[in-house]
């Protein structure tokens, strides 16, 4: 039974389509990365799951109920992003104690432990925090609330790399101790892929991929070498990415399953085979044009 089930989900903002006939299913107690370019509809999707926004059409079920304005979903989920606001009359330590009663599984020793670890000033109001410290503080809420569904929308915005690593470790450790369904949206896939089990890649509001990280790593392969030779192998097949180098050299990225049988032949032809990082692959998969930014400059 999936925690989130989504069927033909569509969301319009006026006339602008933000989510376009999206269908997927997220299983219980998995960490899923929601990956997509800027404006691809990640936040919209997460807010619909959290019950903030109402789907325009299609089915969306969270804990087998419609999430919009649902008390059950609200009680069992938390949505963390960098726009969370807290009143100025509550200090940071007040916020931790005041938010706690709302969440049944709240672990205050964990919250206080993380709070002390990051050495926050307990007397500070939330609005005074810098972007990075705000994200850090919000992430404490996300982890300590131990909600069955934890939604983290760009949780690392503004954090420096040391804090980001701490956050990933803390999240993973607490997840192992107290498994729950976690969705993290991010564009720093390379950093979080260690943490993730599944990846949901969306592009312009539509699903691009939904598979495990292992599968994604194996999905594509890069081939580099003499342009003519490379092209002879990939002719007629779907090229995910293509980049011209000097001296007639060419680099293409292609789905592994299209060319797997020819690996030996390719190696004999003096071409090089590369694994494609998940990060790059996601960029290629969601690119609008096959060439990338280099094309803009090589024109004319």
């Amino acid at each position: 039974m999936g925690v989130i089930q989504c069927e033909d989900l569509t969301k319009f903002y006026g006339k602008i389509k933000a989510i376009d006939h999206l269908s997927f299913k997220i299983e219980e107690n998995k960490i899923t990365g929601l990956i997509g370019r800027n404006g691809s509809g990640k936040t919209t999707l997460l807010k619909m799951i959290a019950g903030y926004l109402k789907p325009t059409s299609g089915e969306l079920n969270v804990f087998s109920g419609k999430p919009f304005n649902s008390l059950a979903v609200s009680a069992n989920s938390i949505f963390i992003d960098d726009t969370m606001t807290f009143p100025d009359s509550l200090t940071l330590s007040d916020i931790l104690t005041e938010v706690a009663p709302f969440y049944a599984n709240w672990n205050s020793s964990l919250a206080n432990g993380l709070f002390d670890y990051y050495s926050f000033n307990p007397q500070q109001p939330h609005s005074n925090l810098s972007k990075g410290t705000k994200s850090t503080f919000n992430s404490i809420l996300g982890i300590a609330s131990r909600c069955p569904l934890t939604i983290l929308d760009e949780p690392t915005t503004g954090m420096d790399s040391a804090v980001r690593k701490d956050f990933y470790r803390a999240l993973l450790k607490d997840y192992l101790e107290y498994p729950r369904t976690i969705i993290i949206s991010s564009h720093l896939l390379s950093e979080i892929e260690e943490l993730l089990e599944d990846i949901l890649l969306i592009n312009q509001g539509a699903k691009c991929l939904h598979l495990s990280v292992m599968e994604l790593k194996e999905l594509a392969v890069g081939i580099r070498g003499n342009a003519q030779v490379v092209l002879s192998f990939v002719e007629g097949k779907e090229i995910l990415y293509q980049e011209d180098f000097t001296k007639g050299s060419l680099y293409v990225v292609i789905r592994r399953n299209l060319i797997e049988q020819q690996f030996e032949l390719i190696k004999q032809s003096g071409l090089e085979l590369f694994p494609v990082s998940t990060d790059d692959l996601c960029i290629y998969l969601t690119a609008n044009t096959k060439g990338g930014i280099g094309d803009v400059f090589s024109r004319g």
């Binding site: 219980e28 107690n29 804990f63 008390l71 059950a72 609200s74 009680a75 069992n76 807290f86 009143p87 100025d88 009359s89 509550l90 007040d94 005041e98 009663p101 709302f102 969440y103 049944a104 599984n105 069955p148 498994p179 729950r180």
Partner: peptide, 26 residues
Amino acid sequence: MSSAEVNLLTASVKQYHYKLKAYTGL
């Protein structure tokens, strides 16, 4: 996984307590 059961009144009362503290500055 335990699923938290909350009724509307409890949630409202909790929010009321929270807001009382939040808005005393007014």
